[in-house]
Each structure stands twice: as C-alpha cells, then as structure tokens.
C-alpha cells in the first residue's frame, strides 16, 4: 500500500516571484501567505469563506484563500494585495479607493481590492450590478459599500490601470 504524506514540497509563484517551500498538508493558502511568506496584507475574517477578507487571485480567478490548501496551490500563480502597486505607483483602483473613501478600518480592503481588480481585469466596463455581484462576497462593516462601488465605477469610467 502507498504511503501518503502529511508534508509536501510545493512551488508557488506569488506576485511574480517563485517560492519553493515545504508545507504541512493541513496548511491553508492563507496561512501559507501570512505565516510562511509573511505577506500579511491578506486578512482572515472568518476562516470559512463567508467574508472574503482573505481573497486572492489564483491562476486568474479570485478564491477565498482560507478554503484552499497550500498543497492545492502547487504550481499555481497567486496575486495578493502586495503585488498590486508597483513600487510607489498605486493602481488606478487603489487611487480611486483613496479618493472616494472606499476604505475605513482597512481590514476588508485588501480582499475587496483583489475582488474588484479581478472584475476590472475580466470586464473593464462593468455595470453597477456586475460590480455588486463581484464584491458581494466581501463583507465590509465600515463603509456601507456605496463608496467602494463609486471607487470601482470611477475606474471603470476612466479605464483600468
């Protein structure tokens, strides 16, 4: 009978940089990013995929990283909030969040921006309804969402990035 292992070697590309790491099979992608790579911009808000604070982009698609195992991300390309700005240059969406007060406490903001940017990447001119659908998996308790929607709409009008 085959022996199955609880520790695995994975290769993951995060924000363009390749990492080779040994991870326990029970480690989530969220724990991998935060605890192993020390990329703490991605937050945990619930641990069961309901709040979206841990949203990252995996192979071009948003996922709640609390419900993905690091092992499942072997070979994947991951984008996190830390990879959005290029040095001092913020993305158009980040600038827009600041301008329209899309962030208050800031804890949902990284996940929210990943969801919104992913929407703009696949649909540069989303309708309000499409924006709402794309971010409704990201809970925010501070802003009441309206300023966030405005921030995304403003980018959509002007053109992404």
């Amino acid at each position: 009978m085959k022996e199955y292992t609880k520790e695995l070697n994975i290769t993951v590309k995060v924000n363009g940089r390749e990492y080779h790491e040994s991870v326990p099979a029970n480690m989530t992608l969220l724990q991998f990013l935060r605890n192993k790579l020390l990329l703490t911009g991605t937050k945990e808000g619930c641990g069961i995929g309901e709040c979206g604070a841990c949203t990252v982009v995996m192979n071009g698609k948003t996922v709640t990283s609390c419900l993905v195992l690091a092992a499942e991300a072997d070979g994947a390309e991951i984008r996190t909030i830390e990879g959005e700005a290029k040095g001092e240059k913020l993305t158009a969406l980040q600038e827009s969040f600041i301008k329209y007060h899309g962030e208050q406490c800031g804890f949902c903001t990284p996940g929210m921006i990943m969801s919104a940017q992913n929407l703009l990447d696949r649909n540069p001119k989303p309708t309000r309804e499409e924006i709402v659908e794309a971010i409704s998996g990201n809970l925010c308790r501070c802003t009441g969402y309206e300023p966030i929607i405005k921030a995304i709409e403003a980018v959509a009008e002007k053109g992404n990035r």
């Binding site: 990329l39 703490t40 911009g41 991605t42 996190t80 909030i81 830390e82 959005e84 700005a85 913020l90 980040q94 969040f97 600041i98 301008k99 007060h101 899309g102 962030e103 800031g106 903001t109 990284p110 921006i113």
Partner: peptide, 12 residues
Amino acid sequence: PRKDGVEKVTGS
C-alpha cells in the same frame, strides 16, 4: 483623503 489611505489600500 484619509491620511492612512495608502497603507490601507496596499495592505501594508
């Protein structure tokens, strides 16, 4: 705009 905007939108 808020003083802490850049820190918050970059996850830093």
